Amino acid sequence: MPIIDIHHPRQTPPNGLLASLCAAVTELLEIPKDHCWAMWHPVAQGNYWRPGWQDVPANDLAGPLVRIRCKSSYSEAQAKALIQLVSNELARGLECPSDSNFIVLDRVEAGQLLARGNIWPGNEKGAVPITLTPVAFVRNDRADLSDDFWGDVVSELELNTSVVPSHSLEGLEGFSHAEVVFSFHRVAGKPLSLNLRSPRGLAHLPPIGVLSQRVKDRPNWLGVSRCEILARNGTSLTVRGLDAIDGSPVLDIKPWMDAFGPRQKTIEPSWVSEVMQDYYGVARPSGEGVGTSRSLGMLRRFFGTLPFRWPAYSKEDVEILLRTPHIL
């Protein structure tokens, strides 16, 4: 699985097209190389009616009609990425416009597939669909997806009272901090690359897996953050330092209790301090040095792309550079 049926007036596919298509699909879905099949179905003259195939020279034929069958355990994001990949591979191999391809995807449910002598039970790799409904929404002035300067961001968490009672926040004001689980809704559902990558794309840092860093482009697109509680007002909780943009769906809110923190000394790689040095920084709102903190972070990341390791300059040196326009 998946099974890909391709219908086209050409009697045979270009050499190597089906093999390369299956290789690309198995890499995308991260499944064994023999778990994808592709079949070419030539359609004889007179046995079809499709604009783009009628009375057209062989070199100008429109794209194929394609039917993909795959397991229902694949996510919506995987299904969309699969359709797009198949379209791109066929457009390249057949030298036809990708917008002339017609592709339909059918999902096979549990109990409807016999493979390798067994009926597929539908729980492959423990993949059980989960439906989550937001209990609140984030309201703040932060709309951009940039990484840094969350320290002074004040947010209102407005309860979704159609899901939880209006008194659900009562008592939370007795805690100094809360733990918030939210959705990276602006990127959720988009195709993912789960290949090894360096934190923040900095070439001098080691490539690591997606579950070894806190990027937003991750399976399930969930964020977990601890923030300071400033006030509770009925169905709204005011917090500071929550790294979620305006409109983010909140899936859960919990009071932070020290007893739930690590019970042993924590250890982390040395690169963490580099990528986090401005994360909870505070951008200066006005006066001399406007934007200095934000510019400093940008400059640090620029130096991070160079062959030498930051800091090549001290923080104080960079502050002087930023305040002296004729130097930069």
Score class of each variant (00 low, 15 high):
residue 298 M to P: 00
residue 5 D to N: 15
residue 184 F to N: 04
residue 111 G to K: 02
residue 306 L to P: 03
residue 106 D to W: 08
residue 9 P to M: 00
residue 278 D to Q: 03
residue 123 N to F: 13
residue 222 L to E: 09
residue 9 P to W: 00
residue 161 T to V: 01
residue 150 W to T: 00
residue 53 W to T: 02
residue 293 S to V: 12
residue 210 V to L: 03
residue 109 E to T: 14
residue 270 S to L: 06
residue 114 L to C: 11
residue 140 N to G: 06
residue 166 S to E: 12
residue 99 D to F: 12
residue 138 V to S: 02
residue 241 G to I: 00
residue 15 N to Y: 12
residue 327 I to E: 13
residue 224 V to Y: 08
residue 36 C to A: 15
residue 187 V to Q: 08
residue 176 S to G: 15
residue 42 P to M: 09
residue 50 R to V: 08
residue 142 R to V: 01
residue 69 R to S: 13
residue 254 K to I: 03
residue 301 R to T: 14
residue 11 Q to H: 13
residue 28 L to H: 01
residue 92 R to W: 08
residue 191 P to Q: 00
residue 43 V to Y: 01
residue 187 V to S: 05
residue 75 S to L: 05
residue 304 G to C: 02
residue 167 H to F: 12
residue 157 L to V: 01
residue 180 V to H: 01
residue 147 D to L: 13
residue 234 G to W: 03
residue 157 L to P: 00
residue 12 T to N: 07
residue 285 P to N: 07
residue 254 K to S: 01
residue 190 K to H: 07
residue 212 S to W: 05
residue 283 A to T: 13
residue 6 I to P: 04
residue 192 L to I: 06
residue 203 A to W: 07
residue 200 R to W: 13
residue 49 W to H: 11
residue 253 I to G: 02
residue 308 F to L: 15
residue 191 P to C: 04
residue 176 S to W: 11
residue 126 G to N: 03
residue 269 P to S: 02
residue 38 A to S: 15
residue 45 Q to A: 14
residue 81 A to R: 05
residue 289 G to N: 02
residue 259 A to C: 13
residue 156 E to M: 11
residue 221 W to R: 01
residue 33 K to W: 11
residue 77 A to C: 09
residue 107 R to E: 08
residue 266 T to R: 12
residue 242 L to N: 04
residue 90 L to R: 02
residue 256 W to E: 09
residue 160 N to G: 03
residue 33 K to Y: 09
residue 78 Q to S: 08
residue 59 N to T: 15
residue 273 S to H: 12
residue 72 S to P: 03
residue 233 N to S: 08
residue 70 C to L: 15
